[in-house]
């Protein structure tokens, strides 16, 4: 009996010590998540209920959110962001999938093509590429030389309100490489035997794509779709440098508007309300995609 108690005691204290050690290992992250993530997350909400800059603040309840409804620039920023997401994400994924299928098989030079086509993803977020894009699509840029062949008059694609957003869509699609890499690893996991069986049955290349590749790859498509959608909603750097939100607010992405409100106009409460709206829009889209996924994502029944 005493021995049992002793054992128990010894065990208890060892578990206790293990807990302590575990928390020592975890301590940096644990402190970090509270101080730098959870706390700001909560204050972000309370700030959205205030009229505040760095120095003074006043509770205004839901006033900021009410104000949003009649803020035409806010509504514009939602339209711009949604348009960008709806254009860039499907195009990027379609392109990534198309090229991934071509690069699936091993052939001479395949590694070169994979690296080369991934390259834009590697550098796409940088200021250097933004500077380059500004010039490519500028009045004297190469794009005008190319379209000039088809008799299209030269113009500054970035300064023209009807085309500015499309230059950013093209920049996003240009970076299809990271999605392509994910598709490639997914394609490699599809059993070769399925294709062999289909080939014996005389299925055409197109049929094999629609009846084997697409369903087998659908979980990866879902994964890419969610990631790219979340990413597209967060576009900032390129719009900030290339178009600065203009012309006529045609590229006023939501994050850019949040930045302007918080750090140019010093309306931090209002900016916090904006960021909560952004969070909810992203959340809604993510859930929507996940909900609909059961109709189009194929999971092997095993």
């Amino acid at each position: 009996m005493v021995n049992m108690l002793k054992d128990r005691f010894a065990q208890g204290s060892r578990v206790g010590r293990n807990n302590m050690t575990a928390f020592l290992f975890l301590a940096p992250w644990l402190i970090g998540i509270f101080v730098f993530t959870l706390w700001p997350f909560i204050t972000s909400f309370t700030m959205s209920l205030q009229e505040t800059n760095l120095f003074v603040s006043k509770w205004v309840g839901l006033e900021n959110y009410k104000q949003l409804l009649s803020d035409r620039r806010f509504i514009k920023s939602i339209q711009v962001t949604l348009k960008f997401v709806f254009l860039s994400v499907p195009l990027k994924l379609a392109f990534a999938l198309f090229v991934a299928v071509m690069l699936k098989e091993r052939f001479r030079g395949v590694n070169f093509f994979r690296s080369a086509l991934y390259f834009p993803s590697l550098i796409g977020g940088s200021v250097a590429v933004a500077a380059m894009w500004t010039q490519l699509f500028g009045l004297r840029g190469v794009i005008n030389d190319v379209v000039g062949i088809f008799g299209i008059r030269p113009r500054s694609w970035i300064a023209d309100p009807s085309t500015a957003l499309y230059t950013l869509v093209i920049l996003a699609v240009w970076q299809f490489g990271s999605s392509m890499v994910i598709f490639l690893s997914g394609l490699n996991n599809i059993p070769q035997s399925l294709y062999e069986a289909a080939e014996i049955d005389g299925a055409s290349r197109l049929r094999r794509f629609f009846h084997i590749t697409l369903p087998m790859l659908s979980p990866i498509i879902l994964f890419n779709l969610v990631l790219q959608t979340i990413g597209a909603f967060q576009t900032f750097t390129q719009a900030f440098i290339i178009t600065k939100g203009g012309p006529l607010n045609e590229t006023l992405f939501m994050v850019l508007y949040i930045y302007n409100k918080a750090f140019t106009a010093s309306e931090m409460g209002y900016a916090s309300a904006l960021s909560w709206v952004l969070l909810f829009i992203i959340l809604a889209f993510t859930l929507l995609i996940l909900r609909t996924s059961k109709y189009w994502v194929y999971y092997e029944a095993e």
Binding site: F36, T37, P40
Partner: peptide
């Protein structure tokens, strides 16, 4: 979690 939600309060902090 999109980082933008933390942008303003982190700056204040």
């Amino acid at each position: 979690l999109p980082e933008q939600v933390l942008l303003v309060p982190r700056y204040v902090l």
